[in-house]
Design a protein around this nucleic acid. Structure first.
Lengths: 123, 123
DNA sequence: TGCATATATGACTATGCGATTATATGGTTT
DNA sequence: AAACCATATAATCGCATAGTCATATATGCA
């Protein structure tokens, strides 16, 4: 209770946090993460589901793996990626709830997309 | 409890979420938010505290206000900005905790910066 | 060995954005 | 009115990056 007083973060720390947000600041990557929430998936399957080219998807996946968000498993010819950091979905939930509030009065673009995640939180 | 199955978000929704993350993906903006956590502050005060030029700070502030993260209040000549969406700090906490875990074994760049926020969560 | 499939990488283009500088806008004071 | 102050805006530059296309790598199979 009461307001927490955070101490200032160093510039390096802020850069790390900013970098994490940057990884999440692309619709295609969010789409891939959403697909991966259903479970480990191969690159080609992701490319088809996301309606994107294979090289493009491959790059995004590598970027997210390098950022520590995904894990990579190779089985024969095909490579399977999976969620490696569940905090991603906490982040998306918080953002969705905030956006819901913001657009509450307007045409509800987000309504169907975030209704469930909102009803999960005890607010 | 157990895993929640989210439903797919529309492309527009994903773009909105990505846009919110993008606003947070810049170290200077995070710095300004951190300064504003202490309370409403004028543009010039922010510029000095952040060691940045006034036009640069002004742009960042406007951008965050347009994104719904900040509020703006003008009093005479000077303009005061303040936090308009507290979810920002939830987001930063989640990211900090995730980064802590990730870099747990390495040199602890984040330790001092995030220790408190980590000890706040019941994990 | 040779060929097919799956993924990764490199070259290239186009777009977006952060920073700086100079200037404009708006308010206050004399 | 003019001068001064704080903030916002415009023009510009440089850089990062998402996307595409072509190609390399690598694994499996005939």
């Amino acid at each position: 209770m009461g307001k927490n007083k955070r101490q200032m973060m160093s510039l390096e720390a802020l850069q790390l946090v900013a970098a994490r947000f940057k990884v999440l600041s692309d619709p295609m990557r969010l789409r891939l993460l959403q697909l991966l929430e259903q479970g480990e998936t191969s690159v080609s399957a992701l490319a088809e589901a996301a309606e994107a080219t294979q090289p493009n998807v491959s790059k995004h996946l590598k970027l997210m793996q390098d950022a520590g968000l995904l894990t990579r498993r190779q089985e024969g010819n095909t490579v399977y990626y999976a969620i490696g950091d569940d905090s991603i979905f906490q982040l998306c939930d918080v953002v969705c709830n905030s956006l819901e509030q913001r657009f509450a009065s307007q045409a509800n673009v987000l309504a169907s997309a975030t209704a469930r995640s909102a009803s999960n939180r005890a607010r």
